[in-house]
């Protein structure tokens, strides 16, 4: 694995990561059909690239970067006989074959790549282009097609990354969703200027907003940003008379946000804002290989696990405060 210092993310300035490299065209890193845990009914989940937060436990670190980039799944490379397909394909000389007959990537070069010649030549998809461009109409036509499949309750869920980062594109798509009567859900960090946040939410029927930690300093340590803007946006949303359904989400991580105190503070905040649903997601480690494929080290590779017992205890704290608390995918939507 290349040293962490060469990772595409760490060497980039915040602006590089967060700023979309074009407007109106959407940068999407995945579209999942038959998504059943991210809103009511059967849904199509659109994962938009780019995120204003960089959570240390993130399961989709490839979603941080809001531009087309490379993913390198070294473990899937099956050759030991001198395959040079990727090396030969790269016009920038970024790929070398090591003595152990494995390709090695120079992330410094690859992070600026726009052409991705290496990705079409590998039969094992070791090198994969992450993030594809979509015109709003292109995405809407997929959604209209999928509308045939959702059933009465389903619809589209925009997640990411954080879909609001590409708010111009998102609003274009959302306007069309309204036109075609498509049910919309969003998963967002709410870490955006209030005006943009409220503008997007106007088109949303169902929202998940993550509140990772009630302590702003801890929030910043875990995610890179404080929580003030998030909390004030939630309050503003409630005050705006928004008619949708809001469920707060919290990836629950041992030693980070699983204390009684954090729960009590979140309850207080929810009661202040007349909120009554929270969804605790037990920390999982599904993202490990993705961190490796991006050439990054994963801080949460060996800690953060929650016991079922503790999840139940936390649930009880919320329930006692008359807040509907769901654990994992055991939800009522």
């Amino acid at each position: 694995m290349p040293p962490a210092a060469h990772s595409p993310v760490k060497n980039m300035k915040a602006e590089d990561i967060r700023k979309p490299d074009m407007e109106k065209k959407g940068l999407i890193f995945d579209i999942q059909a038959f998504s059943v845990h991210d809103g009511p009914g059967c849904r199509t989940n659109v994962f938009l690239a780019g995120c204003p937060l960089q959570c240390k436990w993130c399961a989709n670190p490839e979603s941080w970067i809001c531009k087309k980039h490379l993913m390198f799944a070294e473990k899937m490379c099956k050759y030991d006989h001198g395959c040079r397909a990727c090396k030969d394909a790269c016009p920038y000389g970024s790929i070398v074959i090591t003595e152990s007959e494995k390709p090695r990537i120079n992330w410094e070069i690859c992070k600026n790549c726009r052409t991705f010649e290496c990705t079409g030549v590998c039969p094992n998809n070791v090198l994969k282009q992450c993030v594809k461009e979509y015109e709003p109409e292109e995405l809407v036509s997929i959604l209209r097609r999928d509308f045939n499949n959702w059933g009465a309750e389903g619809g589209v869920t925009f997640s990411g990354g954080d879909p609001m980062l590409q708010h111009e594109f998102l609003i274009e798509v959302l306007k069309d969703c309204r036109k075609w009567n498509i049910h919309t859900a969003i998963e967002t960090s709410a870490y955006f200027p209030e005006e943009i946040f409220l503008q997007v939410m106007e088109y949303i029927h169902f929202a998940f907003i993550d509140v990772k930690n009630m302590d702003s300093i801890a929030h910043e340590m875990g995610t890179g940003v404080g929580n003030e803007r998030i909390l004030s946006n939630i309050s503003a949303l409630k005050a705006s008379g928004w008619k949708g359904r809001l469920v707060l989400r919290q990836p629950t991580i041992s030693g980070y946000n699983d204390s009684d105190e954090n729960a009590r503070q979140l309850i207080a905040f929810m009661q202040e804002n007349d909120l009554f649903e929270v969804n605790l997601l037990k920390f999982h480690r599904l993202g490990t290989t993705k961190w490796e494929q991006l050439g990054k080290t994963y801080e949460y590779s060996d800690h953060g696990d929650m016991s079922d017992q503790r999840m139940k205890e936390l649930q009880n704290i919320y329930l006692k405060a008359n807040i509907a608390c769901y654990i994992g995918d055991d939800t009522l939507f």
Binding site: V36, G151, G154
Partner: peptide
Amino acid sequence: GLSGTRKLLDVIRA
């Protein structure tokens, strides 16, 4: 769960 049964039926019906 029951909502899962509905979702399965949604897929079939689609």
